[in-house]
Write a protein that binds this DNA or RNA. Structure first.
Length: 255
DNA sequence: ATGGCGGCTCGCAGCCGA
C-alpha cells in the first residue's frame, strides 16, 4: 500500500496537479493539507472520477485537510478529541487495516509570536492523543505537514535558520516525543540523497537553488515501519507551472 | 537586506504561510 502526503496550498488551484499526480504516482492513500475549501466546495466528483473516495474537513481561506483513498475509508474522526480548535487540521480513518492520520501542524510564525505557544500546545495535545490512539491501533500512519525540520540535515542552511520557527529545540523535542511513542520517520529508515527537502519558499528562486526544508513527514508505528519498503520525496510537481510550495512524500508498506 | 511570492478575501490592500 502506497501512502502519501502533500500540502497543496489550495486544492481549488491545485486540483489539476493533484489529479495528474494521482495518475503518475498511483498512491493508494493521499493525505492533503491546506485545502482552503469549505466542505461544500470540495471537488468530490473529480476525485471519484479519478478512482478515489475522499473524506475532508475544511474551512474558508485557511487550513483544511482531506484523505483520498482507493480503498474504503472507515471510522472517520475529526480533530484532536478534547482539544478545542476552530482550525481544521486533523482527520483520521481506517484504511485496509491501518489507521491513517492526516495532520496539518500549526506553523508558529516565529518564536516571539503568540502562534508559537499555540503550536507547542497543539503538539502536546496531538502527542497525548496519538499515544492513546496507538494503543488502540498498532498499525498506524501519521502523515502530514509537521512544520518541523527534525534535524539540521533537514535544513538547507542550518546556521541561517538557527532560532527560527520550524527548527527550534522545543519543536524538535515535540517531534521526537511523538517518535518516542513508537513511531519511525519512514524517510530515515532508508538511505536518502543529501539535501532532500519538501518545502521551498516561493521567493528568491529558492527551489532552483534548493534552499529548502524537510517538514512534511510520514511517521509509521513500529508495527508498520517493519513492513515499509521505501519512502521518497517527489519533487516533480514542485517544478511545474504554478506549483504548491510543498512537494509530496510517499511511503510504501506491505500489508 | 525583514524584502522576496502566491494564495485568500463581501478584494483594489492586507492577511497568512514557512
Amino acid at each position: 500500500m502506497k501512502l502519501a502526503t502533500w500540502n497543496v496550498n489550495s486544492l481549488k488551484v491545485r486540483l489539476p496537479q493533484v489529479l495528474d499526480w494521482l495518475k503518475a504516482a498511483e498512491p493508494d492513500v493521499l493525505c492533503l493539507q491546506e485545502t482552503k475549501l469549505t466542505d461544500d466546495k470540495f471537488p468530490l466528483e473529480e476525485i471519484i472520477s479519478a478512482g478515489y473516495e475522499a473524506i475532508y474537513s475544511g474551512q474558508k481561506t485557511y487550513n483544511g485537510v482531506a484523505i483520498l483513498s482507493r480503498f474504503p475509508l472507515a471510522d472517520r474522526t475529526e480533530g484532536i478529541p478534547g482539544f478545542e480548535d476552530e482550525q481544521k487540521r486533523v482527520l483520521s480513518a481506517t484504511v485496509n487495516g491501518a489507521r491513517v492520520v492526516c495532520a496539518y501542524v500549526p506553523n508558529g510564525e516565529s518564536p516571539a509570536s503568540e502562534k508559537y505557544p499555540y503550536k507547542l500546545k497543539w503538539l502536546d495535545a496531538f502527542q497525548s492523543w496519538l499515544k492513546t490512539e496507538l494503543a488502540l491501533y498498532p498499525a498506524m500512519a501519521v502523515l502530514g505537514d509537521y512544520n518541523i525540520a527534525p534535524e539540521d540535515r533537514d535544513v538547507h542552511d542550518p546556521k541561517a535558520w538557527e532560532g527560527s520557527v520550524l527548527v527550534t529545540p522545543e519543536e524538535r523535542r515535540a517531534f521526537n516525543e511523538i517518535l518516542g511513542l513508537g513511531f519511525k520517520d519512514s524517510f530515515r529508515i532508508f538511505d536518502q540523497p543529501d539535501k532532500t527537502f519538501t518545502w521551498w519558499d516561493y521567493r528568491m528562486n529558492a527551489f532552483r537553488r534548493n534552499m529548502g526544508l524537510r517538514i512534511d513527514h510520514i511517521l509509521l508505528s513500529d508495527a508498520l515501519a517493519t513492513k515499509c519498503t521505501g519512502c521518497k520525496v517527489d519533487i516533480f510537481p514542485r517544478k511545474m507551472e504554478r506549483p504548491s510550495d510543498h512537494a509530496p512524500v510517499m511511503a510504501e508498506v506491505e500489508v
